[in-house]
Design a binder for these strands. Structure first.
Lengths: 251, 251
DNA sequence: CCATTTTGTGCGATATGTCAACAAATACAG
DNA sequence: CTGTATTTGTTGACATATCGCACAAAATGG
C-alpha cells in the first residue's frame, strides 16, 4: 500500500461526515472546517458533494446529514453474519434468564452493539445495534480487550480517555490491565456499576472455531436484584451454551 | 452549487462502500469495480484508502468493511433527536397494547427504522434501527408516501421495483396510489400480510408542530390474533396519544 | 503449461487541494 | 445608527494528486 494509492478527497469527506454528532447535528461550513481541521474551501466542497449525492441537506447556511448516510452503516451491519446468527440465541437466552442480553464487537477502544434482546429497562440510555460504549468500563469491552495482545490492549487504554462514568468506574490503566488478566484467566468479566449506577453485568467472549475472539456476549442485571458474586453461578452456564452453539455455527 | 464544487473521489468512495451488501460481504477489487461501475484502478484506490483509514480490512485479496463504517451511520442517527424522544413513548405504547411498535422515516422509496419496541417475534426478519423495507408495501411507508405531493409519490413508485413479497402484496402503482389517498383521508394506513405472511399492521403519521409529516408510527400484530377491521378501533386511540405528545415535544 | 482472469503500475490529461484575496454577512462599541 | 472589526462564504491561481487508459505482472484454473 503506497502513499500514491490514498485518495485524499475520500478521507476528507468521511472525516467531514464524522464531525456531525448529537451535539452538532447542524453545522455551517466554517463549523465543519473547524471541527475537522479541513480548510474552509475544502470543507465546503465536501459538504456540497455530500448534499449533491443526497447524504446531506443544505438550507443555504447549515448542513444536516440525511438518513441516506445510514445506508453506509447498514451496508456494514448487513455484511456481518453475526447479528442474524446470534439474535435467536440471544432471544432464547434472554427469555430463559429473564434478563437483557447483548452481543457487541470491538472497534478500537469502543464496543459496538450488534444485537440485543432487552427484557426490562435497567439502563437509562437506550442501547441499540450500532450504539457505542467505551470498552474499558464495560464487561464486554473487558473480555474483548483481554483477548488482545497485552501491549495492544495497553496502547488502547493509554490512548483513549478513561472517563469516570460513575463513582465505581475504574480509570487507572494499571487497574484495568489487572481486570483484563483476571478476565482472561477466568473466561468472563464482571462489572459492578462502572457504566451506570444500578447496573451489574457479566460478559463472556464469543470465539470462532479457530479460537479467535470475535465478539462478546453479556447479561445485564439491576444491582438491586443480584450481587456480583452470584452472576457467574446464575448466568454463566446458559452463556456457555450460547458460546458453544455459536462456535459450531462459525465453521 | 456548481459542477466544480463536486468531489468525484468522495462520491466514488461512498459508492464503493455501498457495493458491500449481505450477499457480498467480501469483495475483491475487480468485484467492487464491477458492482460499482468504477474503473478497477479507481476501485483499488478507493478500497486501499478505506483500508488505510480503518473503514475496511484487506487480506491481500478480499476487502471487508469494518465496524468503523458504522460510525458514519451512527453519526447520522445520533444527529436525529427523534429516536431518543420517541423511544420512551414507544416503550409505553408497546407495553400498554401488548404488541410491537416501531417508528420509521422515509428515505427515497424505503422506510428506515429509527426506533422500535418489540414485544413478540411475529416477523421472521429481525428489525432494528437502521433496517430498511420498501415503503410501498408497509403501513408506515404508505402514510409517509401519502404525505408527499401526489406526483412525487407516483414518481417514487414508478422508479422503485415493486416486488411481490407475499401473495397479498399489491404491486400495481395505481392500486397503491389509491391506498395512499385512503390513508391521507383517514389519517392512518392498514396492511394485511403484504410484507410478510401472518403480519398485519396499522400506521399513523407523526407530525411536527407545523403539521409536516416527519415519521410514521406503527403497531404490528400477528394475523392470527386480529382482523384488519379491528386494528383501528383497538390501537388507534393509543397511537393518537403518542402523535399528540410528540407534536408537543417538537416545538 | 497455456489460456484466462485478476491485480498492479506508468503516464498524460484533468480534477482537486491549498492558499490567498475578496465579498458578504455579522457583531459590536461608541 | 455608523463605522470598524471579525467571522464566514466564495472565487481564482497554481502546484499537485487523481482518473482512466493501456500495458505488465501475477494469479487462477483447466
Amino acid at each position: 500500500m503506497l502513499e500514491r494509492d490514498i485518495m485524499g478527497g475520500l478521507a476528507k469527506g468521511l472525516l467531514a461526515i464524522e464531525t456531525f454528532t448529537a451535539d452538532r447535528p447542524r453545522q455551517s461550513i466554517a463549523e465543519v472546517s473547524a471541527s475537522s481541521g479541513l480548510d474552509r474551501a475544502t470543507a465546503r466542497r465536501c459538504l456540497l458533494t455530500l448534499a449533491h449525492l443526497g447524504y446531506a441537506d443544505y438550507d443555504g447556511k447549515y448542513f444536516t446529514l440525511t438518513p441516506r448516510v445510514l445506508r453506509l452503516g447498514t451496508a456494514c451491519l448487513a455484511t456481518m453474519p453475526l447479528p442474524q446468527m446470534v439474535q435467536p440465541l440471544l432471544d432464547r437466552l434472554s427469555d430463559q434468564l429473564g434478563e437483557s442480553s447483548s452481543v457487541s464487537i470491538l472497534d478500537g477502544a469502543e464496543i459496538v452493539y450488534v444485537a440485543r434482546a432487552a427484557q426490562r429497562k435497567v439502563m437509562s440510555i437506550s442501547l441499540m445495534p450500532g450504539s457505542r460504549l467505551p470498552a474499558f468500563c464495560t464487561s464486554m469491552g473487558r473480555v474483548m480487550l483481554a483477548a488482545l495482545p497485552e501491549a495492544e490492549a495497553r496502547a488502547l487504554l493509554d490512548a483513549a480517555p478513561l472517563a469516570q462514568r460513575t463513582r465505581h468506574t475504574r480509570t487507572e490503566p494499571g487497574a484495568i490491565m489487572a481486570e483484563l488478566a483476571l478476565a482472561r484467566q477466568r473466561g468472563f468479566a464482571l462489572i459492578d456499576q462502572e457504566v451506570e449506577l444500578g447496573l451489574r453485568s457479566i460478559a463472556a467472549p464469543l470465539r470462532n472455531a479457530r479460537g479467535a475472539t470475535i465478539a462478546a456476549l453479556n447479561i445485564g442485571v439491576p444491582a438491586t436484584q443480584r450481587q456480583v458474586e452470584d452472576l457467574a453461578r446464575l448466568y454463566l452456564p446458559a452463556m456457555q451454551t450460547v458460546q458453544a452453539e455459536l462456535k459450531a455455527m462459525l465453521r
